[in-house]
Simulated scan of single mutants.
Amino acid sequence: MDWRDDGIVLSTRKLGESSVRLSVLTRDYGRHAGLVRGATSKSMRGTLEPGNEIRVGWSARLAEHLG
């Protein structure tokens, strides 16, 4: 299952040393959670603040899996 859409960042939760679990609300697919690797880097920190609009690419084997 792969898709791309525009979305709004709802929340982030630290997962490991440099990754976060991202919750995003998209127009076509609703609320989804995904793993963002390297999200604690200086360039990504400001992008993943709650309320920001981002372009999301989601990829998982099944629809129930974390993208």
Rank of each mutant, 00 (worst) to 15 (best):
residue 42 K to Y: 11
residue 2 D to P: 01
residue 46 G to W: 01
residue 59 S to W: 08
residue 42 K to C: 09
residue 62 L to P: 03
residue 10 L to C: 05
residue 30 G to I: 06
residue 56 V to D: 00
residue 38 G to S: 13
residue 24 V to R: 06
residue 67 G to F: 01
residue 24 V to I: 15
residue 54 I to C: 01
residue 66 L to V: 10
residue 54 I to L: 00
residue 64 E to T: 08
residue 17 E to V: 05
residue 52 N to S: 01
residue 6 D to W: 11
residue 10 L to K: 12
residue 49 E to F: 03
residue 11 S to D: 07
residue 62 L to C: 09
residue 60 A to M: 07
residue 31 R to L: 09
residue 46 G to L: 00
residue 48 L to V: 00
residue 1 M to G: 05
residue 6 D to P: 03
residue 27 R to K: 12
residue 43 S to Q: 14
residue 52 N to V: 00
residue 60 A to K: 10
residue 23 S to E: 14
residue 57 G to Q: 04
residue 13 R to V: 04
residue 22 L to D: 03
residue 15 L to R: 13
residue 47 T to F: 03
residue 32 H to M: 09
residue 26 T to H: 10
residue 27 R to W: 08
residue 26 T to A: 10
residue 17 E to H: 11
residue 35 L to M: 15
residue 9 V to K: 07
residue 61 R to V: 04
residue 59 S to Q: 09
residue 14 K to H: 06
residue 27 R to S: 10
residue 60 A to E: 05
residue 3 W to R: 06
residue 1 M to K: 06
residue 33 A to I: 10
residue 53 E to D: 02
residue 1 M to H: 05
residue 44 M to W: 08
residue 52 N to Y: 01
residue 19 S to P: 03
residue 60 A to C: 10
residue 58 W to C: 05
residue 30 G to K: 14
residue 7 G to T: 01
residue 18 S to F: 09
residue 33 A to M: 12
residue 27 R to E: 10
residue 60 A to P: 04
residue 22 L to G: 00
residue 50 P to G: 01
residue 13 R to P: 02
residue 59 S to F: 08
residue 51 G to P: 00
residue 15 L to D: 11
